[in-house]
Design a protein around this nucleic acid. Structure first.
Length: 613
DNA sequence: GTTAGGG
DNA sequence: CCCTAAC
């Protein structure tokens, strides 16, 4: 166990109750942009937070953080947001009887309930990132190491181009500080902009969960430079390259040939934080400039970052999405090793920790968006973000990604697709119209198409229509539905008739209204009752008297035209003769078609024979 | 407007 | 079921 630096969200629930340490309540809401200062606190045995004394601070900075196994110290930020509930859930396996937590608490005011933090909780909070905290895993370590190695390789490759950093620690330090500060600020701004642009619920989440804490921390640092922070930076900066390399080795368990101080610091910080999103990482391409012009190239840097930072980060996230999540990892990483020097880095890390997380969330959100887009334009489920989500879909589509845009357009098209199909369908219709006009079944046909759905639940018609339309391209589905309907009808022929009667009338109107011509494709499966009627009609009026049969027996089923009756009879004959010859009683019917009772088939055959004669 | 038949 | 030709 060692010293840990991490961000902790302001979890008021954690801090309720008696508070030995009282921090003035936040003056304002937790909104982003509220300046927040952090200070060190110590978690005493009973879990209460005690403001860190100067000695302790010194201890943090100067002391080697070697802590007995039974003791652990945690340095962390207590952010003001209530996002990271996960912290609790994460179980940090910390074997320590007595834990000391040294953390930053908002100077302006920590929730008054801080005191109740349990030591374990405090540790967790200190050790863990607020977001997506996950148990430390070796896998994570490996991932991080791999990343580091990759970067290192790049570093070495481009090392020649990288201006060496002057050994002058002071200058460097000041520059570094400024640089980082600005970096942070810009980065933050950038991220926020992104959030706004995307306007996704996820994004919002990001801003809330990550940005605000981060920002608070950032602003705090910026507005109220913490001595500790400055010190930390200095400490780290002061270290000679060798020391940095040593630190690196301690952190990652291997030597590094990289001599770039900035890089080393970055790496170390990253290692400590287990955050792959050390901002500077993204700058590697511009490292040349950055390193060389750090003092004054902030603008350039920022610009570059805006351009590339996101991409890089995104890529990174993909590579090791969970990297940022394992804040606790840093404890293992080797905090004890450079407790003093890393203090600054720790702070930095703490801040940066958020970035990755945020990025991570963003990534996820984007993914979600994609998925959503694929399916539909339906706003996200998150109510609170719904407003933005909508906007976002638009903005995203227009802005960032072509894909998204496409997706959106697709989604839109989905709705319209039916219309397209409409047109398509309407053509046939037009042809039919002349013909159908005579039959007067034109409308009925339309209705019939919808009818299958309507029979089941007329109220659903509108929605169903849409659905069907969208699906209609394949056309396979409508058919299936109809079959299903027919099956149900088959179960209760009697009922069918009644329903058919009523439904017919209703159906006629609705379908037309909704889909208009589109509804077409009336695959109205013949129900047993219909077949029975048909047979009856044939027996009564004779085959060929379709209009008669229709008039007398299918009045209710307006959608059955005389032609339909004729066709059906033809089919019946076919089937009846196909089956009965071989199996007098048996029935080998096609799978797709409903099985017609043998009796009916027999009757059909009889009638047919009679008719023929 | 119906029917018969092919698709 | 659709489409047509023939009634």
């Amino acid at each position: 166990m060692g010293t840990v630096v991490g961000t902790v969200e302001d979890r008021r629930d954690m801090f309720e109750g008696n508070a030995q340490t009282r921090i003035t309540p936040f003056s304002s809401t937790n909104q982003i942009g509220n300046p927040v200062a952090y200070k060190l606190v110590r978690v005493s045995g009973d879990g209460s937070l005690v403001p860190a004394t100067d000695e302790e601070i010194l201890e943090v900075n100067d002391t080697d953080m070697h802590i007995p196994s039974d003791t652990c110290q945690t340095i962390g930020y207590l952010a003001t947001d209530e996002e990271n509930v996960e912290v609790d859930e994460t179980d940090m396996h910390i074997a320590s009887d007595a834990c000391q937590t040294i953390g930053y608490l908002p100077a302006e005011g920590i929730p008054s309930r801080l005191s109740q933090i349990e030591s374990s909780e405090a540790i967790n909070s200190g050790l863990l990132h607020s977001d997506n905290v996950q148990p430390y895993t070796d896998q994570y370590n490996e991932e991080m190491l791999q990343k580091v190695e990759q970067e290192e390789r790049l570093e070495n490759v481009h090392g020649s181009q990288m201006p060496s950093i002057p050994a002058d620690a002071n200058i460097q330090c000041s520059n570094e500080n400024n640089f980082f500060e600005e970096d942070q600020v810009h980065h933050e701004a950038l991220l926020q902009d992104e959030c706004k642009m995307n306007e996704s619920d996820m994004m919002e989440r990001c801003s809330n969960a990550v940005a605000s804490p981060k920002e608070t921390a950032l602003s705090a640092a910026a507005q109220k430079p913490d001595f500790s922070r400055v010190r930390g930076e200095i400490c780290l900066d002061n270290l000679p390259i060798k020391a940095l390399q040593e630190t690196f080795r301690a952190t990652f368990g291997r030597d590094t040939t990289v001599k770039d101080k900035t890089w080393l610091k970055r790496r170390i910080a990253m290692g400590l934080i287990n955050s792959c999103d050390v901002p500077t990482t993204n700058l590697r391409v511009k490292d040349n400039k950055l390193v060389g012009n750090q003092e004054k190239s902030n603008d350039v840097t920022n610009a570059i970052r805006k351009e590339m930072g996101d991409d890089v980060r995104a890529t990174k996230m993909k590579d090791a999405p969970s990297s940022t999540d394992h804040v606790n990892g840093h404890s293992n990483g080797g905090n004890h090793y450079y407790a003093s020097e890393d203090y600054s880095s720790e702070q930095r890390a703490a801040k940066r920790v958020r970035k990755p997380t945020r990025r991570y969330i963003e990534e996820l959100s984007e993914t979600d968006d994609k998925q959503q887009n694929d399916k539909s334009v339906i706003p996200s489920k998150d109510q609170r973000l719904s407003e933005k989500s909508e906007v976002r879909s638009i903005s995203v589509s227009s802005g960032k990604r072509v894909t998204v845009t496409r997706m959106v357009s697709l989604a839109g098209s989905e709705i319209e697709v039916p219309y397209v199909s409409h047109v398509r369908r309407s053509r046939p219709r037009e042809n039919i119209m002349a013909l159908l006009g005579c039959h007067s079944s034109y409308l009925e046909d339309k209705a019939s198409a919808a009818e299958s759905n309507l029979n089941l639940s007329p109220s659903q018609l509108s929605s169903e229509v849409v659905n069907r339309d969208s699906v209609e391209k394949s056309a396979s589905r409508p058919v299936q539905n109809e079959f299903a309907t027919s099956d149900e009808n088959n179960v209760e022929p009697e009922h069918i008739d009644s329903s058919g009667n009523s439904s017919d009338e209703n159906n006629i109107g609705v379908p037309i209204m909704q889909g208009g011509a589109l509804r077409r494709k009336h695959h109205r499966a013949w129900t047993l009752s219909e077949i029975a009627k048909l047979v009856e009609g044939v027996s009564k009026y004779g085959a060929g008297k379709w209009s008669e049969i229709k008039k007398h027996l299918f009045s209710s089923h307006s959608y059955r035209t005389s032609v339909d009756l004729k066709d059906k009879w033809r089919n019946l004959l076919k089937t009846s003769f196909a089956q009965s010859p071989s199996n007098s009683v048996g029935s080998l019917k096609k799978h797709g078609s409903m099985h017609i009772p043998t009796q009916i088939l027999l009757r059909v055959r009889e009638l047919a024979e009679k008719q023929s004669q």
